[in-house]
Write a protein that binds this DNA or RNA. Structure first.
Lengths: 253, 253
DNA sequence: TTCCATTGAATGGGTGAACCATTTAATAAT
DNA sequence: ATTATTAAATGGTTCACCCATTCAATGGAA
């Protein structure tokens, strides 16, 4: 006989769960506003402090957005798909997953994404990728190496979105975001840059446009593996801590 | 010129970030204990309540575990890979992703997992899957339909783990967990059960053992699509709200 | 001595009242 | 009509206090 340990039900857990429940039931929807803290606390029969702990947790989970001032309050947010990135980052920080596993998963996930994109990508996806390659070209010629990394991040994001499946996009972004931190750290420290990057991108895009799965996946895999080798040449800049602690452009600071 | 809106830095955000930073830097590791709330609050120069909001958020994020009593405190947890499941669930609740996208992603991700498992699965993985099929058989013969669903959930978990890649496992579980809620709701309401389930599983396992990628992926895809069709037959039980609000066996209540 | 009950200290869980800071709308002054 | 002022609503923060749980130290009984 096995007894699972009972965890003391704490007020804030109960509150979080109830709000999530209302969400799941569709009673609460993005855009809705919860009652003011003082009022809600009274309704729930808890102190304002405890209620705030719950609201804070939900805010960190990307479910709520708290705004100050009259007309402020706790609003249900649109879902923030980047939450998954944070989870991935936390797992890496905590040592629950390894960089190797992440890289391997990324290569395979992107392989899948390419297959799906070959089937589902539409004209405007091609155009967005084309425009991204243009920007990458510009950044390359102007020597803005870190901007070029940012372009790469965006490239994979656009590629993932071209599958037309937001779940796939979310998954892809979560494995790509961390990977890009390593690339960023590497480029920032060594000034290394993938040679003929935009050529490779254009070749790939052509295969994608032709919906040539075999060619597209082959080109992408070759590229990803070459980047992987570049990163692995210098274990120092592959340091988990360097990459994770690195301040990113666009990071909320 | 674009000005990104500045978000007021709030004390608890700063605290969360600092602790995450210490984690990323490797200064804090799983098992470590933070100073007592009263002491840490003083060190950080904030009130205990604010510190608690930060600790709560980190606890909900799966990073901390708070224990009461002398010898209690805030401990850094081992990473909890199930956090990703919650994110997926929240995104669904908030309408940021659709059930259709989730199902499609799941079918494709599992296809990938099967490919990887064909290459990486080891003897003990096969044995674990075999044991799972035995349990499924037992549950089937004893008419424990909901236990059988639980077995299915575990089957995909074991399969994902047999890739030897925890990132892939995490991703797979996150798309499978929600899916299983729908299956659970369907089975609970209609008593429907996939016919010849364990036969199909055994066939699949044979292909996996033989490392026959083509056969394994084909068998799996056929099965997944048939389950999909079963679920879609009855849009009522596919209701998002029903499935998400459904109490699960093993759910922390 | 050994064992069990009691006690006390440490720590998280929770409360209530108060005040600060920001935002917006209503109001007053120009 | 426009601009400056004011007031109210709301989240942000602090303080002081008490409760509940846990565990180690203490002490008495067998």
């Amino acid at each position: 006989m096995i007894f699972r340990p009972i965890r003391t039900r704490r007020a804030f857990e109960e509150i979080c769960e109830r709000i999530r429940e209302q969400l799941a039931l569709g009673v609460l929807k993005p855009g809705d506003k919860l009652p003011p803290e003082r009022e809600l606390a009274q309704q729930l029969g808890v102190s304002r402090n405890v209620l705030r702990e719950a609201l804070r947790s939900l805010e960190m989970a990307g479910i709520l957005r708290l705004l100050k001032g009259v007309k402020g309050g706790a609003f249900i947010r649109e879902g923030d798909t980047s939450r998954m990135n944070e989870v991935m980052r936390d797992m890496l920080s905590l040592g629950s997953i390894s960089v190797r596993e992440l890289s391997e998963a990324r290569i395979n996930v992107i392989d899948l994404v390419v297959r799906l994109a070959c089937v589902s990508a539409r004209q405007r996806d091609f155009e967005a990728l084309e425009a991204n390659i243009e920007r990458t070209d510009l950044a390359t010629h102007e020597g803005r190496l870190l901007d070029r990394v940012e372009c790469s991040r965006e490239f994979y994001k656009l590629l993932a979105e071209s599958t037309g499946n937001k779940v796939m996009a979310m998954i892809t972004n979560s494995v790509t975001e961390i990977h890009m931190r390593f690339v960023y750290a590497k480029v920032a420290s060594s000034g290394a840059a993938t040679p003929r990057l935009t050529d490779k991108r254009r070749q790939f895009l052509s295969a994608l446009r032709a919906r040539d799965v075999a060619a597209a996946t082959r080109l992408m895999r070759i590229h990803l593996e070459s980047v992987q080798r570049m990163l692995e040449l210098d274990p120092g800049s592959m340091s988990l801590h360097v990459a994770l602690a690195e301040v990113q452009p666009g990071a909320r600071r």
